[in-house]
Design a protein around this nucleic acid. Structure first.
Length: 181
DNA sequence: TGCACGATCACCT
DNA sequence: GGTGATCGTGCAA
């Protein structure tokens, strides 16, 4: 596979990864999705970032090399997946919020226990792909979770909006969505 | 050792 | 559209 282009500022990367594909083979089944919604988190310059107050045991993988997966627990019960960008020691990450299922939908439905609202939230997306805490710090060029660069279909448009679900730095336009308008 | 908080989800009306 | 559930982590004393 070709190397992933994760260079540039975190918001530039966030916009770039829209349309990229995520292939999960967790549990021996293949689930493939196309990213349609992400959020950029800018590390030590971003009060909303987990890494804002420095490196801790939880966010350690956020300080790893680009392409690292950072998985954290939200509200004690849900898993959320982030793609680490930037350079080693520069904690920048892109939160994977939403995606479109390209293949393996029946597997996702079984994993989620329902057949609608499958990937419209960070926790749901993580569950749909079989991502859990033991995939934290996983490098996304290797199985069982592989990130592949790709292009958005022509009928998709990228939109930048304020981030949601957080209490700080809500004014930044660091949330990127891709839709057919 | 104890306390406060959170990048959410599911269910209710 | 609004509200309750739930628990690990980080920080202070």
């Amino acid at each position: 596979m070709t190397s992933l282009d994760l260079g540039g500022s975190v918001d530039a990367v966030a916009r770039r990864v829209l349309g990229w594909r995520l292939v999960s083979t967790v549990g021996g089944v293949t689930v493939e999705v196309m990213l349609t919604e992400v959020e950029a988190y800018g590390g030590d310059q971003d009060p909303a970032s987990h890494a804002f107050r420095g490196r801790t045991k939880r966010n350690g993988s956020m300080f790893g090399p680009p392409g690292t997966l950072y998985v954290y627990r939200s509200h004690g019960i849900h898993w959320c997946a982030n793609l680490v960008t930037g350079t080693v020691g520069d904690p920048q990450a892109v939160l994977l919020r939403g995606a479109e299922i390209e293949s393996g939908r029946s597997q996702v439905e079984a994993r989620r226990g329902r057949q609608s609202y499958l990937t419209d939230g960070p926790g749901k997306l993580a569950q749909a792909l079989g991502i859990s805490g033991d995939l934290d710090a996983h490098l996304m060029t290797n199985p069982p979770l592989i990130l592949c660069a790709g292009e958005l279909p022509d009928d998709y448009e990228v939109e930048a909006t304020p981030r949601i679900g957080i209490s700080k730095a809500v004014d930044g336009r660091w949330r990127f969505t891709a839709g057919t308008g």
